Amino acid sequence: MTSTLLRAAAPALAAAGIALAATPSLADAVADFYGGKTVTIVVAAGPGGGHSVYSQLIAPAVQKHLPGNPKLIIQNMGGAGGTKAANYLATAAAQDGSYIGILLSDTPLSARIRATGIKYDPSKFQYLGGADITRSAFVVLKSAGVNTIEDAKKKEVLVGSTGKSSQTFVVPTIVNAVLGTKFKPVLGYRGMGDIYLAVDRKEVQGFANVWSAVTYLRENWVKDDLVTVIATISPDPLPDLPKVPKITDMVKDPLDRKLIELIAGNGVLGRGWLAPPGAPKDRVGALRTAFAAAFRDPEANAAAGARKLPWETASWQDMQAQVDTIMKTDRAVIDRMKSILGAK
């Protein structure tokens, strides 16, 4: 009788993210599936960026805490500003729990502002939780001679971009429109790793993206005082640079302010993983429990500390709430954004 009730309750428990491993019959089914299998983490960026670093670090801890202890491997899939990986997870990847992904923070918003090329519904992805809440900023080489947003209104700044759906394009383009800056996105880079190399080679002069990633992927830029953080696109200050001005404080028009605030809130999605729409609920519940345990895991935390990785975790509910906010945002805000970006 008890096992029958547990089986009947399984979908509701999994949907709530409750640890299915606590009930033997459900845990056995999940363990039977994952035992001896490989779980692929699809990373919506090329190698060498923050998404790859965090995925490589969290994989052993997730393996430890997921029933069946499957091996986790990484498949980098940069392209189209994150849309390529999102489309793949929604339409082509196995929907059985053996594929999960980490997308760009702007990917859910892209589904509302673009129709062309979008084959996913962000509300259908099943969010698993995140290792950090990212805070993005405009990072510019000091040699560019642009130290403030006011400087960027007077002088063109070449910024690297991974595609028109990514924040590396969306943020500078929107800030140009609402503040009159002269950031010029340079498209064609496969991921932030390529953009960092482009900055090293001075093909571009900076970018708009996660500031904390610079501190562990390009420590020499900070140590040698090579870059300036001229503004942050975050609802709160940068923890290590609290005096850097916020774009949200500079925008006066009410509609444009709502637009900027919407973008700034996407940091909760910045280092978060998800399962495809069709993944079974019991396996999603087990994945959510495993990720939550991995975020608390002493070895994972020690490894993050050793690499100086920020570790401000987000629950799957936090991620889902932000996606819900995006999907319910007023049409006027979305139309304003589409107009600025020329989105179709």
Rank of each mutant, 00 (worst) to 15 (best):
V186Y: 04
K308C: 04
S161G: 03
W311N: 09
S55I: 05
P70E: 03
V43C: 01
A21H: 04
A321Y: 13
A85L: 05
P277G: 08
A93L: 09
A29W: 08
E219F: 02
G145R: 01
V229H: 13
I118M: 07
I195S: 04
T4F: 13
P280Y: 11
L187K: 14
Q56H: 11
I18Y: 06
H51T: 05
G145H: 07
S55G: 08
S165H: 15
G82D: 06
P239S: 08
K338G: 05
P172D: 02
F183T: 12
A144N: 05
P60C: 04
R112I: 02
Y216G: 00
V62T: 14
E299N: 09
R257Y: 09
V227G: 10
L6F: 14
D297K: 00
I100G: 13
T23G: 00
A19S: 08
A29H: 01
P11N: 06
V251M: 08
K328W: 00
T232G: 09
S165A: 12
G50Q: 14
L274D: 07
L6P: 02
G35E: 09
V227E: 14
F169Y: 15
A45S: 13
I174Q: 08
L309F: 10
K328F: 10
P108L: 12
M77N: 02
T168G: 11
P185T: 03
D236Y: 02
V30G: 05
T23S: 08
F169L: 03
L72Q: 03
A152T: 11
I113T: 08
G285N: 07
V323I: 10
Y216F: 12
M192I: 11
L158H: 13
L238H: 06
V323R: 03
R271W: 11
V170F: 11
L103A: 03
T107S: 13
L128I: 10
A314C: 06
D330S: 14
F183S: 02
I100L: 07
D225W: 04
A111Q: 06
Y54D: 08
L238V: 12
F183M: 12
S123Q: 12
N87P: 10
P239L: 00
A137N: 13
S339H: 05
R271P: 01
Y127C: 02
H51M: 07
N266L: 14
L66C: 06
Y54A: 13
G145W: 07
A86W: 06
W221S: 03
S212H: 15
A300Y: 07
K84F: 09
T23E: 14
M192T: 14
I113A: 04
E203N: 09
K202V: 14
G342W: 10
T173S: 13
A293Q: 07
V43E: 04
P254M: 09
G163A: 03
A12F: 15
D249C: 10
R218C: 00
S315P: 04
G270V: 10
A304E: 00
T168H: 06
G82H: 00
A94S: 14
A8S: 15
D236F: 06
N301R: 12
I133K: 09
L103E: 10
A93F: 05
D106F: 15
L72C: 03
R283T: 07
K142E: 11
K202R: 14
P11S: 02
T215Q: 09
A198N: 01
G145L: 03
A198G: 12
S25H: 01
R135V: 04
